[in-house]
Design a protein around this nucleic acid. Sequence first.
RNA 1: GCCCCAGUAGCUCAGUGGCAGAGCACCACUCUCGUAAAGUGGGGGUCGCAGGUUCAAAUCCUGUCUGGGGCUCCA
Length: 622
Amino acid sequence: MKILLLHVDYIKFKPLKKALRKIEGLSDAEKKGGEAEEALVVLTAIEKGDSDVKAVVGKLVDEVKDVAGQVKAKNVVLYPYAHLSNDLGSPEIAVKVLEQAEKELKKNFKVSRAPFGYYKEFEMKVKGHPLSELSREISVGGGKSKKDDSSESKALKAEEKLQSYWHIMTPDGKLHDVGKFNFKNYANLKKFAVYEKSKFRKMVKEPAHIKLMKKLELVDYEPGSDSGNLRYYPKGRMIKALIEEYVTKRMQEYGGVEVETPIMYDMKNPILEKYLQKFPARQYQINSDKRNFFLRFSACFGQFLMAKDVSISYKNLPFKFYELTRYSFRREQSGEVAGLRRLRAFTMPDVHVLCKDISQAMTEYKTRFLLSLDVLDKIGLKREDVELAVRFTKDFYKKNKKFVEWIIKEFGRPVLIEMWDERSFYFILKYELNFVDSVNKAAALSTDQIDVENAERYGIKFTDKDNKKKYPLILHCSPSGAVERVMYALLEKTSMNGTNSLPYWLAPTQIRLLPISDKFNKKAEELAEEFNKNNIRADVDDNSETSKKKIVDSEKEWVPFTIFVGAKEIKDNVFALRERGKKGLINLSKEEVISKLKELQSNMPWRPVPLPVLLSKRPIFV
RNA sequence: GCCCCAGUAGCUCAGUGGCAGAGCACCACUCUCGUAAAGUGGGGGUCGCAGGUUCAAAUCCUGUCUGGGGCUCCA
């Protein structure tokens, strides 16, 4: 049966007309209808599987008691509401269930029951608190006459049932109870563990990066699109492009073979159809000429569909497909979309490795774990900036303790462990590197999963040494997580530690030249050109402003280095280099400045200044 | 999806039934400047949108859109 529980200020109802022919007439009292205040209204729909009346009533009563207790309701209204289900059971049983439930509940509550089988008018005012509206599905094992066996509901039920066991594992391989673990030196891990485990959270403000992404003219909301689909201004686009380039470069070095796959897929494709049903209504859909398509929510679809058509020998394994999806789409619930943390359109580097067996998979897994840590580190997110979570089935842990312990030991700090009794996802193990932000919310960056299911689903096979076709294991890895989320983490981090700066290689302007007066604009422009030729993003503040004002402006833009250009500098080739966030100036020749900045740039990707070099030529985006 | 809050100039915001405001930014002019904000003047508004109440609505009511937060969710 399905029930909907509503905590109401009041409810009034009155039967009007029979909805079912067979139903008996009403007493005069019943005809008047009823009302209740401060009540828990239980809308019910009895379904085909609910033949075991006693068991159904028992569960219903438990459910009602539980919720009524939580919302402190003393009045209960049982209200038959057929529209909750499209698989209704027989009226006879429904009436029995309602009558017996009423009897049971009367022991604890003041109960009223609306008549069954009538059209009723009703009016109620539902309270707004989080528990005021809850829906429940009650099923009784064994007594089910009709099983709801769509893969959709199976997956959802599996998720509901999924029992998680939370632990902290220390680098020595010991498992600790989360509740008993001493978080004294691990405040951030505590925040993360609390975030993952708990349901209720304190009121929090908006995360710091949202104001920053606008103020720095990086990214903004686009009201003309759907929420979670952002616009990137030139500076934001440049930063994002650099991160994309860097991650791609590292993936290529690792051996990832870059491919490109469509962003939309036929909803009727037999392979995709089932998989899709597991996660209803979370994707964008597109109608085109009688066909329905969904927008990919990861790179998996295109890569797996490609992989199933590839002839693969065991000699080719491990084989690595890489793609950077711009974009992947997830129609996240509207209330959950926030800034750069959670989007409906996001850019995801995704490398899938086909492995011939678990041993090969674990070897790859180790390599990729270290690689992910290093990629984040080079981008500007150090190991101490992230918290590790490792999730696996009990069975996997039992068989591969050493492997799990290796991951934790390698990370070098206590990590959050989530263990499941049985596998209800497609993977048996996954880790994530999580970032905890300025409002104590956590967001996953890097992740890697051992997938034991999709090779078979998609028909991805390789020919083994014994000339038999076998399904490979697939590792799903995003070495950095969504690129937008990397930007989010960088902005949150700098806001939290008070440095208010971007890593040098991502600064839209790396050095700003400030002509001491308009007379030196031309000279500064020439100088900027020379810097830019040396892969140093230099621009010129040629606005007709005072020197102090130009410094203020460069500070507001987080420009890491500034130099003034005047008669002295040109004559003596000595520049007083001002480094943001540091006191004092360093006198250097032009050549020394160039070599210092080149060293900072190291071999990270570089792009030219994303806007005109002369500030006077730049429009203001925000 | 549900609940709560917000939306007024490019930005940050004041204005709570009676002439649409401030600071910053922008434009013009003066100043040509040495490491955190020179001076004077000027332009700029569908008060998110739609409807309603009223002699009169930015202000009150209804709906809606967008953003933020919470719940749920996060393959």
